[in-house]
Nucleic acid binder design. Sequence first.
DNA 1: TATGAATGAGCGTTCATTCAT
DNA 2: AATGAATGAACGCTCATTCAT
Lengths: 196, 196, 196, 196
Amino acid sequence: MRKKELKTRDKIIKNALRIFAQKGFFRTTVDDIAEATGVAKGTVYLYFSNKEDLYTASIDEHFNIALGMLSEVDQSPGTPGEKMNKIATDYVNYITDLRTTYLPFSFESMNLSSKTLKKIHSAIEPKLHEMVNTISRIIKDGIGHGEFRRVDPQLAAFYFLSTIRAIFFNHFYVTNDSIKTESVLELFFDGLNKRR
Amino acid sequence: MRKKELKTRDKIIKNALRIFAQKGFFRTTVDDIAEATGVAKGTVYLYFSNKEDLYTASIDEHFNIALGMLSEVDQSPGTPGEKMNKIATDYVNYITDLRTTYLPFSFESMNLSSKTLKKIHSAIEPKLHEMVNTISRIIKDGIGHGEFRRVDPQLAAFYFLSTIRAIFFNHFYVTNDSIKTESVLELFFDGLNKRR
Amino acid sequence: MRKKELKTRDKIIKNALRIFAQKGFFRTTVDDIAEATGVAKGTVYLYFSNKEDLYTASIDEHFNIALGMLSEVDQSPGTPGEKMNKIATDYVNYITDLRTTYLPFSFESMNLSSKTLKKIHSAIEPKLHEMVNTISRIIKDGIGHGEFRRVDPQLAAFYFLSTIRAIFFNHFYVTNDSIKTESVLELFFDGLNKRR
Amino acid sequence: MRKKELKTRDKIIKNALRIFAQKGFFRTTVDDIAEATGVAKGTVYLYFSNKEDLYTASIDEHFNIALGMLSEVDQSPGTPGEKMNKIATDYVNYITDLRTTYLPFSFESMNLSSKTLKKIHSAIEPKLHEMVNTISRIIKDGIGHGEFRRVDPQLAAFYFLSTIRAIFFNHFYVTNDSIKTESVLELFFDGLNKRR
DNA sequence: TATGAATGAGCGTTCATTCAT
DNA sequence: AATGAATGAACGCTCATTCAT
């Protein structure tokens, strides 16, 4: 029964993550998630005290998945630059699989109550820091091996994540997918300025 | 009469832009906007057929303002690099003034109905293209003068706008505002890779 | 329009008072009241911020009516004893008209949230005090004229109101209405003990 | 087995009585009672077919306790007046122990479905009659011994019970407990009218 | 033009009740 | 006998939209 309980809760989270990703917090109803999971609406409330709690749990799940992909790439062989390219590609693929509709997946802008935002914050901040730290270490490694410039590794890691996100936001603005991941990454690594 | 009408419509849009920016589409009520404008709720519907229309008009207004700032900087003297720095700084300041709350201003993720999304798209795409084109021209100019590398100017322009947005999204993830505009722009211009 | 507004609000309160009296707070739905008033559910929320607010307003209305009856009797001619008999009879008639079902009308026991109880308290306490004070004055008058014993007038006034209520609670326990108002009042005035 | 069953059922009733008394029928959930009893929610339904049944059983329990106190006092030595004073005091103490919250304990006004009300009625009417009869006998005894006036003993008995309840309802209206049991009983026994 | 009272569909949440184990 | 996960009907409340004035 312990197993079954975890399974139902887990199934709800997985469906919630997907549907929230597709339709956003407000256009997703608890019924949507319950129906997709094959349970009654009330069942959702056995595992989550309210919709925002479920949303928080979904974001948490998202970061767990992202962290999993990250550390897997980190432990695989390759130069820092190769690793970062792999991270970006994997993440882009994951998100691309997740959103089945036109809409971009973005936790960045939910306009929830500030109370919930704070809850989400405290839930994701440690995980985001872990992501930033992992990438940061890769960058430091790259600096040590003379592959990267001497920049602030934390800042570069943050900017790297933003660059990945930029690839998705592009979809919102430009309907034809002319913007390629590699081209953006090339700009990230080599910058705009001409080398002297 | 004509003047008064435009004024009321204009006042509504300006308040809508500010409030939507602060609270997002769903948490903003038509009453919020009517009240802030000092008109009755029904009056809003004299000028906009529904809430999403008003939202679309607000986004349009936002891009008009952004385009205005852009062309002003474009026509001022300075190197392409200086111009781009000015654009980023001005835009950051504008957005910072706009959002009075904790929440980032992001049109990217509204999770509206796809019908409305398409309307917004067709409304903003020409303006966004104008923005991208203006920046694109500056970049081309920089390439011609040997200041920038030979990259796809459109892609670089798009990535430049994404970089500006990245500075705001940062606020959502990192509570202390340690990420400085200049540091991010430095990374944008010089890239991560070491120069050979 | 001012008039119309007051009318709708007033109509809602009057229906709410009647239905709450018949079915109690929990078994009464906002829809019940809206339907009885001939307005949509949302209309109720134009005038009252929530169900408990409406309930509080209903109780207030009840006490206003009771106070009106009380002061009318008070200003009519008669001995203190006659006045008190009239008060009891009028009140009993009023309540009897109000409850159309089997259920007693009792504000005493709603088991609401303590927050609401406090709101109701502060709303009715002054009015209840006014009721007690009016009866108290009548009793004092009766004592002064040698009609009543020298008792605490406030206590006697409170007990008098309880005696009136007792007549209704009786209906809950005893299905045949054998308990007559006059018999109970006789006991109230003359007591159980034999006079020495 | 048989013993254990009775024990569980009994434990549920005792907890139900206490919690219903504190929070009322509607604000009490079956979960509240199950949790307090230390059994699963489903277990409650092994012994009671629904919540209203459990409520009826609780009221029954209440009357059994009250009847027990009553007959104990009845069989103890003392004048009729002394006995009635003892009854009132004991009952007040019992109820005071029962309600741990601000709310008065009142079965009088539950606003349940009329079907359940009828069930409750038929359950408590015989017991209430037994209470009234016991007190009635005491009063008759007092009349026979010249202690009480020649009144309808049933009516006086009913009014006596109402007087006891009045003491509790007072708590709802008057926040400071200035109303003392003895003062109210004095009024009950001696009446308001001056003795000629 | 402008108003704002009225509407009612829609959604989050609760909780008594059931039933497979 | 006992459990507790699951159900789903019910209800409070919101708010975009309408329309008579």
